[in-house]
Amino acid sequence: MSQSYPPQQPQQPGPAGANPYAQQPPAGAPAPYPAQPGAPAAPYPAQPGAFAGPPAPPAPGRNNLALGLIAAVVAALVAAGLYGVVIGLTKHEIGWAAVGVGFLIGVAAGKAGGRNPAVAIASAVLALGSVYLGQLVGTAMIGADELHVSFSELFFDHLDLVQQAWKENADPLTFVFFAIAAFAAFSGTKKAAA
């Protein structure tokens, strides 16, 4: 009787049939690595060190001047109103509020407009206007309280009186708040666009 050496094993279909040492998971068993959400199902898990393909291209840089200016103007008007209310309620100019005005304008402009240098400059200029408008609103709120008239009557009908009162009460610290707000707007735009 002649028998071949080594004894012949029955062939199984698939990779295990070609390699007697390869083991296939039982049917219905979970995969050793769970699939990533949204990824196509792979027949075998990726091996460490395997080439995954080229990296994704970087996101395109935003450079929308019009959208940045619109966002900065809207933020400037909102910030001016809030700053004026803070001044009117506390009857004081508050430095951190001026920083908040500038930063709010800068972040809105940078997020919407991107890295366009004109957006950063425009946000700084709008921050100056926003602080001024906020100080006028605050002055009108304080004056309306003292004169027992409505805010809207004093602010809209007698804006010249409000501006005159602002000029009389302006001191060097008032102009420091302008500079702080402009710097915060400029730097906030740069940080938000990065």
Rank of each mutant, 00 (worst) to 15 (best):
P6V: 14
V107Y: 02
L128G: 12
G53H: 11
A165V: 06
D171P: 05
K111H: 10
A80N: 02
T174C: 04
V73D: 10
A27S: 12
P57W: 01
S4Y: 05
P117T: 00
G17F: 11
L77W: 11
F156M: 01
G53D: 11
P10C: 04
A109N: 02
P60T: 07
R115Y: 02
L67E: 03
I105W: 07
G28W: 03
P26I: 10
P45W: 10
A52D: 10
A35K: 15
S4Q: 11
N116T: 00
A72G: 05
F178L: 14
V74T: 15
G88F: 03
N64T: 01
Q3Y: 14
V78E: 06
L136D: 01
G53P: 05
H92K: 13
V131P: 05
G14K: 06
A41F: 12
G106D: 04
K190T: 03
E168F: 08
V125E: 03
A144L: 13
S130V: 03
G113Y: 03
Q135A: 09
D157Q: 13
A165D: 02
Y132D: 12
A75G: 07
Q47A: 15
S152Q: 13
A97W: 01
A127Q: 01
A192M: 10
P26F: 11
L136M: 11
V101T: 04
E168D: 12
A31V: 11
V137M: 12
D157L: 07
Q12A: 07
K167N: 07
E93C: 03
T139C: 04
W166C: 00
N116Y: 04
W166E: 09
G17R: 09
A56F: 05
G129I: 10
Q164H: 11
A80F: 01
F186W: 15
R62Q: 11
S130R: 02
L147Q: 15
Y44L: 14
V74N: 06
Q163I: 07
A170E: 15
V176T: 13
P60S: 13
A144Y: 13
A71L: 02
A192H: 14
N19V: 03
I121K: 01
A97Y: 04
V176R: 09
Q24D: 09
H92N: 02
I94D: 01
G188A: 04
V85A: 13
G100K: 03
A75W: 07
